[in-house]
């Protein structure tokens, strides 16, 4: 009996189970077939995709245990400062199985040549640096969902009113990560720390993406949806 019990995998952390269920469905970019292939078509598709992703991210955040307990103002502040990190982490996760390719959506992946042709090379190179980091760590789905929720809760927005409440959310997620790694990867005692240490590069990559999209907004050549504009402006 003792042997059978020790061979049984540890039960999955309830927070991890919850976050796995809360994972959004796959999104498709559906580039406009009316536009000629090139930077305008790719950028239009990306801006449209980003707008739909923000809607999905807002719905996802509401499913994170503890997030709805924050005041509405703090929910807004947290999302306004961290949505792009959540979005970028999702792109990095989707790109993990593909060597040197950024998977913006299921039907929209760019290799170096494609990214250069689409005027997205600088952004893609930054994203690939993050992807390589997660690939080297062999990031798992359970870790990805925890890290994504932590990226949101790790908001350093100066507009947060009840910082203690946000800190509590952060602590619960941090504890879930430690518990998960402790039970699933006891042979790697520094793994949780290694994962948390990817958050600075995630923020840096999101800042590069913000710079890219803000440049597009200022260029005025690509139509952007209202929610996307609202969220971009909240970060400036």
């Amino acid at each position: 009996i003792a042997t059978a019990t020790s061979k049984k995998p540890a039960p999955i952390n309830p927070m991890v189970s919850h976050l796995l269920v809360a994972e959004p469905e796959k999104l498709y970019a559906m580039p406009d077939p009316a536009l000629p292939d090139g930077p305008l078509r790719a950028t239009s598709a990306l801006c449209d995709l980003a707008d739909r992703e923000i809607v999905v991210i807002i719905g996802w955040a509401k499913n994170i245990p503890g997030f709805p307990a924050l005041s509405l103002a703090d929910q807004m502040s947290v999302l306004q400062s961290a949505w792009l990190e959540v979005l970028v982490l999702g792109v990095a996760w989707r790109s993990l199985p593909c060597e040197d390719e950024v998977v913006f959506a299921e039907d929209f992946a760019l290799d170096e040549e494609g990214a250069r042709a689409a005027g997205l090379w600088e952004l893609s190179a930054a994203l690939l640096q993050l992807v390589r980091k997660y690939r080297a760590l062999r990031l798992e789905r359970e870790e990805y969902v925890l890290l994504k929720a932590l990226a949101l809760a790790n908001s350093d927005s100066v507009h947060i009113e009840d910082m203690a409440a946000v800190q509590r959310l952060r602590d619960v997620l941090h504890e879930a990560l430690l518990e998960y790694e402790g039970s699933r990867r006891p042979e790697e005692p520094r793994r949780a720390g290694k994962l948390l240490l990817t958050l600075p590069l995630l923020r840096q990559t999101a800042a590069r993406a913000l710079h890219h999209f803000y440049g597009i907004k200022l260029g005025g050549k690509v139509p952007m949806h209202k929610l996307f504009l609202e969220m971009l402006e909240a970060m400036m």
């Binding site: 707008d51 809607v55 807002i58 719905g59 509401k62 509405l72 929910q75 807004m76 999302l79 306004q80 949806h225 209202k226 929610l227 609202e230 969220m231 402006e233 909240a234």
Partner: peptide, 19 residues
């Protein structure tokens, strides 16, 4: 809130329609 009205509405109402 006026400047961030879509986010405000989505958080409050939870409906992604008519954006």
């Amino acid at each position: 809130t006026e400047r961030h009205k879509i986010l405000h509405r989505l958080l409050q109402e939870g409906s992604p329609s008519d954006i």
